[in-house]
Every structure is written in C-alpha cells, then in structure tokens.
C-alpha cells in the first residue's frame, strides 16, 4: 500500500492518473456513440489522417497537436460530407484518407531538417509525459462532452438510431452529425497523447463492447465503459511499470484481456442458465 501512495508523490504519476480518468470519460462517451452507430472505421480514418497533421506541424515548426487537430477536423468534415452524398463508396474513401494521412506524416517528418521526433510516442502514446496544460485541455473537452451528451441525449440517441426516420421528420440531423464528428475528431486528437494513433481506436471500442456484453442501454454502456476504461488503463499502467513494457500497449492489452474475460464469463453464465432452464422444463414435462 505504502508503495502505491509513494508512487503518487511523483508528478508524472499524478498526471497519468488524471489523464487516464479524463480520457476514460471522453472515450467512454464518444466511443459508445461510435460503436452504436458503427463508425469505428470512420474514426480509424480520422485518427490516422491526423498523423499527416503531426508531420506537417513538425516541418513548419508548429505545435504537433495543432496540426493533428486541423487534419482530424478537416478529414472528419470530409468524411461526413462524402457519406451524406452517399453515392461514393464510403469505406474506400476512408481507406484512402487513412493511408494518405500516414504517408503525408512520414514524408514531412522525413524532410524536416535536424532532429527526428520520437515517432513512437505519437504512434503508441505516452501517458507518462502528459503535461499540465494538456490535462487542462482534456478536462475542458471532457466537461464539454459530458454536458453536450446530457443536454442533447435524446436527439443524439434518436438520430443515431434511425437517421432516415429523423430526416423524414425534418429533424436537424445533418447539423448534429457534423457537430458529433467534430467532437469525435477532437476526442481522438486529445487521446493520441495517451494511447497513440495506433491504439486510440481500442480506447473507443474495447470498453464499449465489454460494457455492451452486460447492458443494452445507451446510458449504462457509457457509464460502464468509463469505469472499465479507467480500471483497465490504471491496471495497464501498473503492469507496464512492473514489467517494464510500453504504457500504451500495456493499456490496450489489459483492455483486450478484460473484454475476452468478460465474454468468457458471459458465455459460461449463459450456458449454465440455459442448462438450468432445460432442467426446469424437463422436470415440468417429466
């Protein structure tokens, strides 16, 4: 116990703890929307496209996360616009954006004179180096996302469930869709620091799918996801500490482990239920 208390005397551990909490809230809320609306691939496209922005920012000497934010938002709006038109192969355009963003990023990092930035930290995240100012930005976004979902809970749920019906009722579907995709883009960029480009998708899908095993209620999936995400992130951090492995990968591994464990428990539980039900039916019939 003392060892754990001692750990929190380090600033970077405190920061990591706060980052885990905030990113669990952001990803728990946005990820539930993404998973429910089957936008995982779209989010992957936005995430990877933002790497182009990171590379260009390095080249032009700007803060990398400014570049990432710009690229993420532009690609998010582009994807939403393309899917609204609906007559282009949607998944192909996302695939193109995905790889083009990565290519632009690599090219610009390569031609940037002088030092080579630590690409690994952008690809796999570095929760232990989150700064106080980054935490503030995450806190503002987390608060905004929670308030936004509380105020617009019903329209968000209703429009996501059946867009065509909502449009037939002349509901402001496009406006909300654009707002949501921008929010998703911001959420992704904020979490690149914690989980990295390659792993941020897991933060947006693994806790939600784990939660979905136990609930089919949108609100509850959000809450369960936040808890699972936070517990998994902290456990992953601890594991990475003691085993000396990279934090991002350890977190994702833990979240995956929780998912498969939950799935296993559910399968065993359901099988046992079915068997006991059969026994009841047998004894009634017999």
């Amino acid at each position: 116990m003392q060892a754990i208390i001692d750990l929190f005397s380090y600033t970077f551990i405190n920061h990591a703890f706060m980052a885990a909490l905030l990113s669990s809230i952001i990803c728990g809320v946005l990820g539930t929307y993404i998973v429910s609306k089957r936008m995982v691939f779209i989010s992957g496209g936005i995430t990877h496209a933002s790497f182009g922005g990171i590379g260009m920012a390095f080249y032009f000497g700007m803060p990398p996360f400014l570049g990432a934010t710009l690229f993420a938002m532009i690609s998010a709006l582009g994807i939403e616009w393309i899917s609204k038109k609906g007559n282009v192969r949607n998944d192909s355009s996302i695939g193109i954006l995905w790889s083009l963003g990565m290519a632009i990023g690599i090219i610009f990092v390569y031609i940037t004179p002088g030092f080579t930035p630590n690409l690994m930290s952008y690809l796999f995240g570095s929760i232990l180096t989150v700064s106080a100012s980054e935490l503030w930005v995450m806190a503002v976004l987390a608060a905004f996302v929670v308030i936004f979902f509380s105020v617009f809970y019903r329209p968000i749920l209703f429009f996501a469930f059946d867009e065509g019906f909502a449009k037939s009722q002349k509901a402001p579907v496009n406006f909300l869709n654009y707002t949501m995709i921008l929010l998703i883009a911001l959420g992704i960029v904020m979490n690149i620091k914690v989980a990295g480009i390659i792993l941020v998708m897991s933060m947006l899908t693994l806790p939600q799918n784990t939660a979905n095993l136990f609930s089919n209620n949108f609100k509850r999936i959000i809450i369960y996801s936040i808890v699972i995400s936070f517990v998994g992130t902290m456990a992953g951090l601890a594991g990475s500490f003691w085993l000396g492995i990279p934090t991002g990968a350890a977190i994702i591994f833990t979240l995956s482990f929780i998912f498969f464990l939950a799935k296993l428990i559910k399968m065993v539980y359901e099988r046992r239920n079915r068997q006991s039900n059969e026994q009841i039916t047998d004894s009634v019939n017999g």
């Binding site: 329209p155 209703f158 469930f161 037939s168 009722q169 509901a171 402001p172």
Partner: peptide
C-alpha cells in the same frame, strides 16, 4: 423518437 422532428434539439 417519433417526436424527433417536433422536438428538434
């Protein structure tokens, strides 16, 4: 959600 249009945002 049948009132999605009437209620708006």
């Amino acid at each position: 959600s049948g009132l999605a249009g009437k209620k708006g945002l």
